[in-house]
Design a protein around this nucleic acid. Structure first.
Ligand SMILES: [Mn+2]
Ligand SMILES: [Mn+2]
Ligand SMILES: [Zn+2]
Ligand SMILES: [Zn+2]
Lengths: 138, 138
DNA sequence: TTTTTATTGAAAATCGTTTTCAATAAGTAT
DNA sequence: ATACTTATTGAAAACGATTTTCAATAAAAA
């Protein structure tokens, strides 16, 4: 499990592999914190100085399109990205340090059935996110 | 239950009641769809032509501050607002027409306890949102 | 190596939002 | 009612984030 997985995915989808894209991939892949475009830019430029902010936006766009990263919605803003989890998962965020973890095993079936019955809605999907303090911050 | 409730709330908190604010309140209060600032502006200007977009932003800011409205996060964007529910509630959104409903009675206690145990996090709050098709759209 | 063309970063354009500011009008005191 | 104080207003300018344009470059194919 390394960044080469993402690189191959880009390649397999007809995208060329460049130094700029490697720098962005290296930065975002494996980050334990959600990163905004500017944050990606600042970090990635330490690996590849000539990198342009525009390319960060364009690369994030492609990674999101390939479901390799996902946008993280937070009270402070919704522009940050994190590696996408595999399969059906949800996020757990530390309100202090911004660390992100995935969890699965939520069982919302009886809940959604209930709501569907009460409201008449046909429920297609759900967003669930937990906020709290991580082991280091509690 | 009318817009006068919001008007009083504004008044009680030292804000003056103006035609511009009435137009915004009349537009947002009771809307079954989340509205963006521009959408509020377009609708409210039919009630009060001289209204400025700036005032829409400023009024929404105050309504949010008083917890009378809340921001709605969606895949397409996170700038829209809807009347805030009372107490602990969650949103149910129609993916077709954008209608918003509230629901309560979710019991996530055992889930959060589980996740807390597995991850070591101290969980403080949660976001839960359901998406689907409303009665009219299904 | 040569050729093709996707990708690049700089600069300009655009979009949503915020700030500035002088004029106005809401609420209060007279 | 009238005068007074000051919060509120909308227009214009400023701002920050994102997107578009474009000529130069470099990745991949021939
Ligand atoms: Mn789930
Ligand atoms: Mn809940
Ligand atoms: Zn933490
Ligand atoms: Zn609908």
């Amino acid at each position: 499990m390394s960044t080469e997985i993402w690189i191959s995915q880009l390649q397999d989808n007809g995208y060329r592999i460049t130094s700029a894209r490697r720098a962005v991939v290296d930065t975002v892949y494996g980050s334990t914190h959600a990163l905004t475009p500017i944050e990606v830019y600042d970090k990635a430029r330490k690996k590849y100085r000539a990198l342009g902010l525009v390319t960060v936006y364009r690369t994030l766009e492609k990674l999101e399109e390939l479901h390799l990263i996902q946008r993280v919605h937070q009270p402070i803003g919704c522009q940050a990205f994190i590696s996408a989890g595999v399969g059906h998962q949800h996020l757990l965020l530390c309100q202090n340090c911004g660390q992100v973890e995935f969890f699965d095993g939520d069982d919302l079936d009886s809940l959604t059935k209930n709501i569907a019955r009460k409201t008449g809605y046909q429920i297609k999907e759900h967003w669930l996110q937990l906020f709290g303090l991580c082991v280091d911050c509690r």
